[in-house]
């Protein structure tokens, strides 16, 4: 999961694409936060995440997330286009199409 996501961020770094996380680790304790940062470095998480626990209600509750990971594909206009596509090649196919549409809109 994480290595593939890292490769997507790298692959599209010069195109209109952002991987945004909502991280649900127990970062509301000092120990939890330390553990998170250690793992972040170890696993090479290069993208930004919201802290799920910092919001009230939690972001995952507002978004009715029932299982992890949950994925939302949001286009350049903020519209939800797909949910929970998890196969790596299908993910790339769908995102490539969306990124092309975002680039076309920029012109």
């Amino acid at each position: 999961m994480i290595p593939h996501e890292r490769s997507l961020v790298e692959k599209w770094k010069d195109r209109p694409f952002a991987l945004i996380g909502v991280n649900s680790d127990k970062t509301n304790t000092e120990k939890g936060m330390a553990l998170y940062k250690e793992k972040q470095k170890e696993m090479g998480v290069t993208w930004r995440s919201f802290r799920n626990e910092a919001n009230e209600p939690r972001i995952s509750d507002d978004w009715r997330v029932r299982g992890w990971p949950t994925l939302y594909y949001i286009d350049h206009e903020g519209v939800i286009k797909h949910k929970n596509i998890r196969g790596e090649s299908q993910m790339e196919e769908v995102l490539e199409e969306m990124i092309a549409a975002a680039e076309a809109a920029q012109k």
């Binding site: 999961m1 996501e5 991987l19 909502v22 649900s24 696993m43 992890w68 990971p69 350049h76």
Partner: peptide
């Protein structure tokens, strides 16, 4: 919404 104009893959995740 800071990311309007970009495609966002929003990922609910955790270690």
């Amino acid at each position: 919404s800071d990311y309007r104009g970009k495609v966002v893959l929003l990922d609910f995740w955790g270690f």
